[in-house]
Computed example of a mutant assay.
Amino acid sequence: MKNWKLSAPFLLLLPSFIVLAAVVIVPLLLSFYSSFTPFRLTKPESFFVFIGLRNYINILSDWNFWVAFGRTVLLLTIALNLEMLLGLGLALLVEKASRGQRILRTIMMFPMMFSPILVGFQFKFMFNDNIGLVNNALQALGITNNAIPWLIDGTLAFIAILTAEIWSSTSVFAILILAGLLAMPREPVEAARVDGCTPWQTFRYVTWPFLMPFAYIAMTIRSLDVARAYDIVKIMTDGGPAGRTELIWTLVARTGYSDARMGVANAMAYFSILLSILFTVYFFRKLAAARTQIGAEW
Rank of each mutant, 00 (worst) to 15 (best):
V67G: 05
P27H: 01
I232K: 11
G100W: 07
A288H: 04
F32C: 11
A242M: 11
A227Q: 05
F271V: 10
T106W: 02
L85K: 03
R186E: 15
S34N: 14
A242S: 08
F36S: 13
F47P: 00
V19Y: 15
F17A: 14
A290I: 03
L75D: 15
A21L: 06
P9Y: 00
A91M: 02
I18R: 08
P185L: 13
A8S: 10
L11T: 06
E190D: 15
L156R: 12
I51S: 03
T170F: 00
D129S: 12
K43N: 04
L287C: 02
D238K: 08
I78H: 03
A21M: 15
Y56M: 03
R204N: 13
E297T: 07
I177H: 10
T202S: 07
L182V: 08
I232F: 13
L224C: 09
G52H: 14
V23I: 10
P15N: 07
S223Q: 14
L156N: 12
Y282R: 04
A174Q: 00
M262R: 01
L75Q: 05
C197T: 12
L151N: 15
Y257V: 04
V23Y: 01
A137Y: 07
I175K: 02
F271N: 07
G87Q: 01
A218S: 14
P15C: 01
F214A: 01
A227F: 14
L88E: 02
S276P: 00
L20M: 14
Y205M: 08
W150Q: 06
G240M: 05
A79V: 07
W167L: 15
G256Q: 01
Y257E: 03
M184I: 12
S46P: 04
L6H: 12
